[in-house]
Amino acid sequence: MKTLILGTAALALTAGLAFAAGHEKTVRMGTEGAYAPYNFINDSGELAGFEIDLGNELCARAELTCEWVKNDWDSIIPNLVSANYDTIMAGMSITAERDEVIDFTQDYFPPTASAYVAAADNADWETGVIAAQTATIQAAHIAEGGATLVEFATPEETVAAVRNGEADAVFADRDYLAPLVEESGGALVFVGPDVPLGGGVGMGLRESDGELKDKFNAAITAMKEDGSLNELLVKWFGEGVQTY
């Protein structure tokens, strides 16, 4: 999914050394809490979703003590670099641009398609006004094309822009949009082609936290090999989801 603001390398280095020196510290897991079914706030006011289940299992397998930290999307990378938490699990697509600022584990969600959703089949998704969440790979894609991009801070606002006529279509992860279309009773429809973007979704870490990255990579590999990652993918995204 989402922006890049170059952070402070010195802070990242300090945080990495702190982890290497003290394995007993709690690993703080940063997430947005606003991108169902990846991560969201449930009816009990608690973080829930695919990435919360997955992150908890990864921490258990890596024998790490972890806690979740909710952070707005537009500052999620800067706050990782500034050591306000130690990882990002927030539906974040692995891209070369982001990889210049932070590091990534291997993907835990396969490369997937982005899609357009509108209020009518004849909506102008090619040259019209397209809503996308600020600082996402979808926003960057629209900015490079022939449509007019309107950006919103949250994914909910992008869909609302289509519903209230501010935008002709919204462009986002298909897996995020699919349940909204299904639940809309025909008020929302897919238009245009699917567009493959990014290299899958992975956990973001500071460049200096190589040891922590290795621990999580080993846990992700184990879950791929024993089928438990596929089970979580199907649980949260349905039988049609791409699996490993």
Rank of each mutant, 00 (worst) to 15 (best):
G33A: 13
R28T: 11
P78L: 09
N84A: 06
L54E: 01
D99K: 14
S44H: 15
S44W: 10
E63P: 01
Y85W: 09
D72I: 13
R98K: 13
A83S: 14
G33P: 14
L64I: 11
A48D: 12
S82H: 10
A21C: 08
A21V: 06
V81K: 05
A36S: 08
V101G: 01
E24D: 13
R61C: 08
E67A: 07
N42T: 14
N71V: 14
L58W: 03
E57Q: 15
N84G: 03
D43I: 04
H23L: 12
V69C: 04
R28S: 02
E24L: 05
G55R: 09
R28W: 08
A90Y: 01
C66P: 05
G49L: 06
L64E: 08
N39T: 00
I102H: 02
L58D: 10
S44D: 14
A34P: 02
M29A: 11
G45W: 05
C59Q: 02
G30C: 09
F50V: 02
P37N: 14
E57C: 06
F104H: 06
M29T: 11
A48I: 06
I52V: 15
N84Q: 10
M89C: 02
S44V: 04
D43P: 00
E24A: 10
E46V: 01
V81Q: 13
E46G: 01
S44C: 11
E63R: 12
E32T: 12
C66G: 11
A60Y: 00
T65D: 09
G45A: 02
R28H: 12
W73S: 07
C66V: 08
T95Y: 12
H23R: 13
D53C: 07
P37A: 12
D43H: 08
A36Y: 03
F40Q: 12
T95S: 15
H23K: 14
W68G: 04
N79L: 09
N79V: 04
F40P: 01
F50I: 02
G45Q: 01
V81W: 04
V81T: 12
D72P: 15
H23T: 09
V81S: 10
E63C: 06
N42F: 14
L58H: 10
H23M: 06
N39D: 00
S93E: 07
D74I: 15
D99L: 10
N71P: 01
F104D: 00
I52R: 02
A21N: 15
A62S: 11
M92T: 14
G49Q: 08
I76G: 01
D72T: 12
L58R: 04
